[in-house]
């Protein structure tokens, strides 16, 4: 039995220690906004926040989380960075098919949490692990800049 704090709610889950967090949030808790892409930390689709930091939930054994706070795409809009990122995403119509986007948004929010006014280098480093098969990268970068300006 593990106790996990997800989006402000405490959940008791009956799962083995080595189960990836992604399986728990999608299959046991039922929050399906977080996506499965590769399962080996190479695409970013499964990005969530652990105490505000972006993490790939597909390679995060639940035993490693302890009482840290997990935030998923379903609740990130309640943070100030999340609010401005989601607004910029809509204003610039960043999404194409959308599959990678919850991961993109989670990485972008975590970036703004650390660097409220990121330069191109910082954006590239933070977003490099999030792959988009539709090629929305230019719009992602623009939207991050818009969100940074509006959030200021």
């Amino acid at each position: 039995m593990a106790t996990l704090n997800i989006n402000g709610t405490t959940h008791q889950v009956d799962a083995p220690d080595d189960m990836p967090l992604l399986w728990v949030i999608r299959d046991i808790i039922g929050l399906t906004g977080t996506k499965f892409g590769c399962g080996i930390a190479q695409c970013g689709a499964c990005t969530v926040h652990i105490d505000g930091q972006a993490a790939r939930s597909c390679v995060l054994p639940i035993s490693a989380i302890g009482d840290k706070k997990i935030t998923t795409i379903e609740a990130v809009g309640e943070t100030s960075a999340g609010k401005s990122i989601q607004k910029a995403w809509l204003d610039l119509e960043v999404m194409q098919c959308g599959y990678c986007q919850s991961g993109q948004i989670m990485s972008a929010c975590s970036l703004l949490g650390q660097h409220p006014h990121p330069n191109d280098e910082q954006i590239d480093t933070a977003m490099a692990g999030n792959i988009c098969r539709c090629g929305t990268y230019p719009r992602i970068r623009a939207a991050i800049k818009v969100a940074a300006k509006e959030g200021a």
Binding site: A41, Q42, A55, R56, V59, T125, A128, G129
Partner: peptide
């Protein structure tokens, strides 16, 4: 930078 991109998640 490479480590952050490809290795740090695990």
């Amino acid at each position: 930078k490479l480590y952050q991109q490809y290795c740090a998640a695990c």
